[in-house]
């Protein structure tokens, strides 16, 4: 093999497998979903018919889909700010603790939930929520409050999922913010301190702009994550119930497709989710593009 030949071929040998995997297992399924969404095929019966937009019409007529859409919005409105602001606050506090065992202890404790499987995390929480023997109802009893139904209560189910999803995900954002804050050069902060600015003001005007690329990254990944990561929590804790009160659109898609084998409807939901993600991503880039302050 001549060297010239090797250099011409090498890029594709090196990147080919990655491209192949991405295309076969991530892009193609999405393309197939678009196709499936206009048929009535479901894998059990061999025949498939073109049904136009019938599947889209059906899911829009389904009260569970509407509930799932509204829930998706609630999850976003609550969890996105919570998963950005609370970790940011914790990171700001952590950076004020002197490096050492104590600081490390905090970091590990706060990061632990992030590394667990959703089934593990979900089961740990199911046990806390358990109406009969669970810790929460017992603790409510200690302070004289009536027991609750927690994840089986239509009004509370969504909030139980929210808590677990938050608990499972805040640690990562906290680390990201912490890393960004650590990297701010000391002299800049010292100069600001000499100006006599109050800490909170200093944070808003100096530190926050300096970590804005991280802030942008966290905002984007958190928005994606709220749609995605929560599905595991929903599945283990409530299965989307009671009567769809804690489902989101991704879990709705999963249920339509693999619980009831309505592939057309599931694929229609998948297409809508993709469109939604494209729209949100575009919006975020537009919003943050001009505000992000890049260090170099």
């Amino acid at each position: 093999m001549t060297r010239k030949f090797a250099f011409a071929l090498a890029p594709w040998i090196f990147t080919g497998p990655a491209l192949l995997f991405a295309v076969v297992f991530l892009y193609l399924p999405v393309v197939f979903s678009v196709g499936l969404s206009v048929t009535d095929w479901n894998f059990i019966r061999p025949e498939a018919n073109f049904v136009g937009l019938e599947n889209y019409r059906r899911i829009f007529a389904d009260p569970n889909f509407r509930d799932a859409l509204i829930n998706t919005l609630i999850y976003c409105v609550v969890l996105i700010p919570a998963q950005i602001l609370v970790p940011l606050g914790l990171a700001v506090l952590l950076i004020r603790v002197r490096q050492g065992t104590v600081a490390n202890g905090y970091k590990i404790a706060l990061f632990l939930p992030t590394i667990l499987a959703y089934s593990t995390a979900g089961i740990a929480w199911l046990w806390l929520f358990d109406p009969l023997n669970g810790f929460f109802n017992t603790a409510l009893g200690w302070v004289g409050l009536p027991p609750q139904r927690w994840h089986t209560d239509p009004d509370l189910a969504l909030w139980c999922v929210t808590i677990v999803a938050f608990w499972k995900n805040f640690g990562l954002n906290m680390l990201l913010f912490l890393a960004a804050l650590v990297s701010i050069p000391k002299p800049i902060l010292e100069a600001a301190a000499l100006d006599g600015a109050r800490p909170f003001w200093r944070f808003l005007t100096i530190e926050l702009p300096l970590i804005s690329p991280t802030f942008f990254f966290v905002a984007v990944t958190t928005t994606m994550g709220v749609l995605d990561d929560i599905v595991g929590a929903i599945d283990v804790l409530t299965g989307g119930g009671p009567y769809g009160q804690s489902s989101n659109i991704l879990h709705y898609m999963y249920q339509r497709g693999l619980q009831f084998f309505q592939f057309g409807q599931a694929s229609a939901a998948a297409v809508l989710i993709i469109l939604l993600i494209l729209a949100v991503t575009w919006l975020q880039f537009r919003m943050f593009e001009h505000r992000v302050h890049y260090e170099s």
């Binding site: 999405v30 995605d228 898609m253 497709g257 989710i273």
Partner: peptide, 8 residues
Amino acid sequence: PTIIGIVP
């Protein structure tokens, strides 16, 4: 999303 293509 991780499970977006789960049906195909």
